[in-house]
Amino acid sequence: KRYRAVYDYSAADEDEVSFQDGDTIVNVQQIDDGWMYGTVERTGDTGMLPANYVEAI
């Protein structure tokens, strides 16, 4: 699945990823209600991200 960031996010922990509004997130997997795991296409960084900061595309 592919998602697009709708807000900027700065990683708060080493297992999270930072991204900017408009970034595409690929290979996304749902972890639980609030978190997903995926790769930021622009940077190649992979990690956890907050589900409410992205939307499906």
Rank of each mutant, 00 (worst) to 15 (best):
P50L: 07
E41V: 11
T46Q: 09
V28M: 06
D8E: 10
R2E: 07
E16D: 05
V26S: 08
A11Q: 06
T24A: 09
M48C: 11
V17Y: 00
G44M: 06
I31Y: 09
D15N: 15
V40W: 01
V17P: 02
E41M: 10
D33G: 11
A11D: 02
E55S: 09
R2N: 08
G47M: 02
V54H: 02
G34S: 14
R4N: 04
A12Y: 09
N27F: 10
G47R: 00
D32F: 12
V28I: 08
G47A: 02
M36A: 06
N52A: 14
S10G: 07
D45L: 13
M36I: 12
T46Y: 08
N52I: 13
M36K: 04
L49Y: 11
G22Q: 05
R42A: 06
D33R: 09
I25Y: 00
N52R: 14
Y7T: 10
Y37Q: 07
Y37T: 08
P50N: 07
T24N: 08
T46R: 12
A51C: 10
I57E: 09
V26F: 10
E14K: 12
G44P: 01
Y9T: 00
D21Y: 15
E14G: 11
T24Q: 08
I25K: 01
M48W: 15
E14I: 12
A51G: 07
E14V: 13
D33N: 11
Y7P: 00
Y9A: 01
V17H: 00
I31C: 14
D45Y: 08
R2H: 08
M36Y: 13
D45K: 13
G47I: 03
F19G: 00
D21M: 15
D23E: 04
Q20Y: 13
Y37C: 11
Y7G: 11
G34I: 14
V54S: 02
Q29W: 14
Y9S: 01
G44I: 02
V17I: 10
R42S: 06
Y7H: 13
T46V: 09
D13M: 13
I25D: 00
Y9L: 02
V17K: 02
W35N: 04
Q29E: 11
V6L: 15
Y3P: 00
S10C: 14
G38R: 00
G47F: 03
T46A: 09
W35S: 03
E41F: 08
Y3W: 09
M48N: 08
Y7R: 15
G47C: 03
P50Y: 05
G47K: 01
S10M: 13
T46G: 04
E55G: 05
A11N: 04
F19V: 05
Q20L: 14
R42V: 04
D23S: 01
G47T: 01
A5T: 04
Y7M: 15
D8A: 14
A5M: 00
I57T: 08
G44S: 05
A51N: 06
D21T: 15
I57H: 07
N27T: 06
T39L: 06
Y9M: 02
R2T: 12
Y3E: 00
W35L: 05
